[in-house]
Design a protein around this nucleic acid. Structure first.
Length: 362
DNA sequence: AATTCGGGGGA
DNA sequence: TCCCCAGAATT
């Protein structure tokens, strides 16, 4: 049987020499580490850094976050994706203030009771902020460990995941567990790369079973993903006679929950796009509109499907607005938009509107 | 156990 | 294009 128990020694030695300076490594504030770990869920470091800096400036403590409104919180998260993370951070902050006296719990088990904190984030906070010798497993560590132990099983299977977590648990050292966990992730990020692992400079190369077997590029084993469906979506900038236009807030749960948008929806078979828009506005808001000229067309890929978003000018005609498929609505001017959190596609619509309303050069 | 949640970066 | 990313919650 393979012996990886000595892994932490060369790994920590490598990390002490090569570790990257990151904003969340400059202090020991558990709150700041929590924010960083949640932002880093499924999100790359370079994407997170500017959001992290702005967040801590706006919400420097858990009390500041707990006291903020959901709109303020979503506005700070705007563009980062997986918006339930922001809603859960907000809710967990209020729990921490109300039932933990404003202090994060120190054990992984207690941390995991908070909204938005699962096995990874609980282990990360417990080991990095509180020096608890508990394991973590993320995408990087999954790749490193399936290579070190040359695990041939499909990592999407819960049985395989369980095995990887168990292996990770046997490797965590009692000294510097947080540094060790970060080092293992950074090894995956800098050395044990998905398509081109740099085995020649890897501090764990001598221990690596996949390297010995020549199977590095076949680890980890993932299932194939089917092709993504493609939808056409119509959205409207619906004008009222006083020069204001309509925006709507999406339901708090589900895709882009709580974000604002130009209302509309998916095209159904046999429909023209203007028909789609008129129908969706009727179904979601209960009003009748007249669709006018097209504004712009935007392509966007989500995790499980792709869309082409067609946006039109439109005019309010009749009916009283009801919240049939939206959480809220507002009649606004351009100057109002800065206060509302929008998804990236709708930010592009706004940019197109601004561009078209600017006087054209001759 | 499988699906649903964003958006960007890199090969 | 496709893969990948310091995953969690829901069904």
């Amino acid at each position: 049987m393979l012996d990886l128990t000595s892994l932490s020694v060369p790994l920590l030695q490598w990390w002490d020499e090569h570790k990257v300076d990151l904003p969340w490594r400059r202090g020991r504030d558990p709150y700041a580490i929590w924010i960083a770990e949640v932002m880093l869920q499924q999100t790359q470091i370079s994407t997170v850094i500017p959001y992290y800096e702005r967040w801590l400036a706006q919400f420097p403590t858990v009390e500041h976050l707990a006291a903020a409104s959901l709109s303020e919180v979503l506005k700070q998260w705007e563009g980062l994706g997986y918006y339930s993370r922001a809603r859960n951070l907000h809710a967990a902050a209020q729990t921490i203030v109300a039932t933990y006296s404003g202090q994060l719990p120190q054990t992984a088990a207690e941390l995991q009771k908070l909204k938005g904190i699962g096995p990874y984030t609980a282990g990360a906070i417990a080991s990095i902020a509180f020096q608890q010798p508990v394991p973590i497993v993320d995408g990087n560590i999954t790749r490193v460990l399936t290579r070190l132990a040359d695990i041939p099983d499909d990592i999407s299977q819960s049985q395989t995941q369980k095995g990887i977590w168990h292996l990770a648990g046997t490797l965590v050292p009692l000294v510097r567990p947080g540094d060790y966990n970060q080092a293992l992730m950074e090894l995956g990020q800098k050395i044990c790369l998905p398509a081109m692992p740099r085995c020649a400079v890897c501090p764990a190369a001598a221990l690596c079973q996949a390297r010995a077997n020549g199977t590095q590029l076949e680890r980890p084993v993932r299932p194939r993903r089917p092709g993504l469906p493609h939808y056409h979506v119509a959205a409207g900038v619906i004008w009222r006679d006083d020069g204001r236009f309509l925006i709507a807030q999406r339901p708090l749960n589900g895709l882009l929950g709580g974000l604002w948008e130009f209302p509309g929806g998916k095209q159904e078979p046999g429909e023209t796009l203007p028909q789609t828009l008129k129908r969706e506005i009727s179904e979601e808001l209960g009003i009748v509109i007249k669709v006018a000229q097209p504004i712009t067309m935007i392509k966007h890929a989500y995790t499980h499907f792709r869309i082409t978003l067609h946006t039109f000018h439109a005019h309010y005609q009749s009916g009283q607005i009801q919240h049939l498929g939206v959480a809220d609505h507002a009649w606004v001017t351009f100057a109002d938009l800065a206060r509302y959190p929008f998804a990236v596609t709708d930010q592009k619509i706004i940019a197109a509107l601004v561009e078209q309303s600017r006087p054209k050069p001759l």
